[in-house]
Amino acid sequence: MISRYPVFIPKLLPRDEYFVSGRRSCKGCGKALAVRMISKMIGKDVSFGYPKGSSPFSRYAQAGVGLTWDELSSDDLTDSLIDRIIAGNERGSEAEGFAKRIRKAVIGIDRRIFSKDPLALTGILKEKKGIIYICYDSEMYMDELIKRFLPSMDAHGENHPLGKDEVREFIHNKNIPSQALESCITYAATVCPSYPLDLMEKVKKGLQVSGNAFINVLTPCPTTWLFNPDLTAHMGFLAVNTGFYPLVELESGRLKVTKRVLKLQPLADYFKVQQRYIPFPPELISLMQEVVIEEYEKLTARTEGKGK
């Protein structure tokens, strides 16, 4: 919508707020920012699903969103979802004025949900119901890495120093998951709320595509990452410009980097601002820097069609 105009004017975006103000999210919450932008683009024809008890916004989750709201349990996410989608489509087709099918936006918790319940994603993707799966990525898996370096009562040398491939495992988590890539998904993308128009257009593309769509959102979190709440958008800029979280788009089998960074910033800039990375030794940061540059080069080579 915005791409039709030559100028960047946020005023031209839809005025309606479906994500109500007056909720209990933290100061400068990245999740709230992302959900507000996403719900603006999705509009009214969609119902939200959210895993039970994990709503960060309020205890009264239903009141936080002006759309219809389903509370799901994370254990049988797939089964309950599919039943509800069928029910919703039937209800929509009965009502007048709903010629098209209702699409369903699902908001998963963290990327942790894949390690906890690996069938949650594959089950959804197997059913051809046209789901947009929007996944939060607030980097909670990095805590496993940070915990190794915290001072503890245990003996020294309990954990062996990390190798390159072990570090790569954590950085791989930031891309589109391999399950989604292998299942011939029609649309998949990674977005960040610091690039709002990029986010909105990718969500809109995911809505228009006939088929399943997967969107991964990096949501900076001031309370657990320990930074000043006014830096929320700045953290997203740093994550993209250091090459730590590349903005990628998979459309009809082709991978494309939407925000190409010509000269990567040093990764230490990203780690310096967050106080949770204080226990990291400098050797690990230099090792991660190597891995990030390698992965980024691999990604750009793949998008240009040189290698796989």
Partner: peptide, 27 residues
Amino acid sequence: FCPDGAVCLDEEGYYQAELDYCKGCGL
């Protein structure tokens, strides 16, 4: 960029904050 949706337009076309919703994050 307001995560709380607290920024709104006034009559002259300028922006202002609804102080009931603003949490003062400074974004």
